[in-house]
């Protein structure tokens, strides 16, 4: 479903003209994902995981290489069309949605939950369909009367559930979970992970779960990629293989979790 091929991306360094240069963030990332799969992308903070996520959502364009969804270059997709603008129902397939780590900045503080959920459905009849929006809330185990609430009236866990419901609103082919449970407390983290697991089983969703938390990744994912310094350094196809990793950084990460 998703093919990331030799993606290179650099950011311009800040500084004076003569000191300016490029700082490489992604250095030839290559991997693929199957439909219905949950792939974990684990690595230290600053290793380039979220930047890779932005490339996959199409909001950052790589200097070299490309990301393909169902064989089509993500950066040349008609996103508005894929999200169903001007159609009766949201587009199915070819859509990437995202859930962020920081739920506070993930939603417009001026929007009510109704507007938050309707945003990706804009231009479709479903945007104004209260029963569809209520069904989305039910999917993430939130009561229907939350539609009229503002984000500051919700707890962190509830707000993250709203963000998950928003990500599912347009029936995406792939949901990118960018440290989606890292800023929640442990009990809420477990609830949200269970919710994501159930949603995957119910709807056959595909997740790309970006995290630095190995425990959360092993709880949810079928396969794990270890990411370090802008590269995929190790691939683990089943959780049983975790003990056989060869890469030094990956072994350190596993040892740290076990310790």
């Amino acid at each position: 479903m998703l093919q990331v091929e030799n993606v290179h991306l650099s950011f311009k360094k800040k500084g004076s003209f003569w000191r300016a240069g490029n700082k490489p963030i992604l250095k030839g990332v290559t991997f693929h994902m199957r439909q219905g799969e949950c792939l974990g992308l684990i690595g230290a903070s600053g290793s380039g995981k979220s930047t890779l996520g932005r490339v996959i959502t199409g909001t950052l364009r790589p200097q070299r290489g490309l990301a393909r969804l169902f064989g089509e270059d993500i950066h040349h997709m008609d996103k508005a069309g894929l999200f169903g603008r001007g159609r009766a129902r949201p587009g199915l397939g070819g859509v990437v949605s995202i859930v962020f780590q920081d739920y506070n900045t993930s939603v417009n503080p001026r929007f009510a939950v109704r507007d938050i959920l309707a945003e990706p459905l804009r231009g479709t009849k479903l945007a104004g369909d209260a029963s569809y929006l209520k069904a989305l809330l039910a999917q993430v185990r939130l009561p229907a009367d939350y539609l009229g609430r503002k984000s500051f009236e919700l707890s962190g866990g509830e707000l993250q559930r709203v963000c998950i419901a928003r990500a599912l609103a347009a029936k995406p082919a792939l949901v990118l979970l960018d440290e989606a449970v890292s800023s929640l407390d442990v009990s809420v983290q477990f609830q949200v992970l269970e919710l994501l697991k159930n949603l995957k089983e119910e709807s056959g969703l595909s997740y790309l779960f970006i995290s630095h938390d190995l425990a959360a990744v092993t709880h949810l994912c079928d396969r794990i990629l270890f990411f370090n310094d802008g590269r995929v350094v190790e691939q683990v196809d089943s959780l049983a293989d975790l003990v056989h990793v060869k890469d030094c950084y990956s072994r350190q990460l596993i040892a740290a979790v076990l310790a």
Partner: peptide, 26 residues
């Protein structure tokens, strides 16, 4: 680069929508 603006861009929202609904009220 607020997450809600990035989300809006991810879902294909146009510049006018982002300016009028997210940026200007902010």
């Amino acid at each position: 680069n607020r997450n809600y603006v990035v989300f809006s861009r991810t879902t294909g929202s146009g510049s006018w929508f982002i300016l009028s609904r997210h940026m200007l009220p902010a």
